[in-house]
Design a protein around this nucleic acid. Structure first.
Lengths: 149, 149
DNA sequence: GGAGATACATAGGATTCCTATGTAAAGTGG
DNA sequence: CCACTTTACATAGGAATCCTATGTATCTCC
């Protein structure tokens, strides 16, 4: 089958497969987009909306909406910024940490199931895929964050 | 940063990065979802709507809409199936081939630009990423198709 | 010929995101 | 201290992508 070396073709293939992967994941695991924000929040620690948007790679209004969803579900909470009244600090609640763990487990199980069907695939290759995708995106800023779960 | 080996974490990362990659691509290149169908059509040759949906990885109604868009833009055309009146054969028009070439070029340029910024990344790794994503999706049926451009 | 399967279309709605724009609070120079 | 600009968020409105449910015509097979 397709085993091209032409970056143009590979890029197209990557786009197609990535889009499909995302679509399939959405349908099968039923994980809302906002859940991915939890991961960013976990990495970066309590942040403002704009900063989160930048880290997540979406616009500020979009992040406003995502955060609103997360707050409504009790996964994050907004507290006033100590020195800047305009800003708010969004942070994970315990429930948010649980949800993050749940989502990671779901993803893990899904990936593991596929891996089991294809013994040739290694986790090293998996990691390569992650690296490639990470590189192929503009990358906002890679500031260090917090930790947890 | 994240350099995990845990499939669970890697799966989550992959999901996040893939989603972001797709989003960025959509925004920056402004390529409609229907354009990816052109690629499928090119690989599989003239096909019915349901078959396309399966190959593309979406539902039949969704593919109906996508095909309708493609036809409206003159990139594909529908002809009656020779033996089955219910079915139609969707096939690429010359304009469709051109568009496919254009999209591939855009994707290629985009990927090439990123690759240029990261000399450490090889096309082999790129191909690995494609393979990984391909594996991580249920894969409908890999029947051989036609050719062209 | 009639029951069930198959191919496609349509209707209606959920999700995800963006652009444009408004409002309030910080900074900044005079 | 006072405009003026910048920054942080929120809201409004709409576009794109997909799905489920359902209807209609056609094919298959007994």
């Amino acid at each position: 089958m397709p085993a091209a070396t032409d970056p143009s073709v590979l890029g197209g293939e990557l786009a197609t497969q990535a889009a499909r992967f995302v679509r399939t994941l959405r349908r099968e695991l039923d994980i809302p987009a906002s859940a991915r924000v939890l991961s960013v929040l976990d990495e970066h620690g309590p942040s403002g909306v704009t900063s989160l948007a930048s880290a997540y790679g979406c616009t500020q209004p979009t992040m406003s909406a995502l955060v609103a969803q997360l707050v409504e579900q009790g996964w994050t909470e907004k507290s006033p910024h100590p020195t800047d009244t305009r800003s708010t600090l969004v942070s994970l609640t315990p429930a948010g940490h649980s949800e993050l763990a749940r989502v990671r487990r779901l993803n893990g199980e899904h990936v593991a199931a596929r891996l089991a069907e294809h013994p040739t695939l290694t986790t090293a290759q998996l990691r390569t895929a992650v690296e490639v995708l990470r590189v192929l995106v503009p990358a906002p800023e890679t500031q260090t964050g917090s930790t947890s779960s």
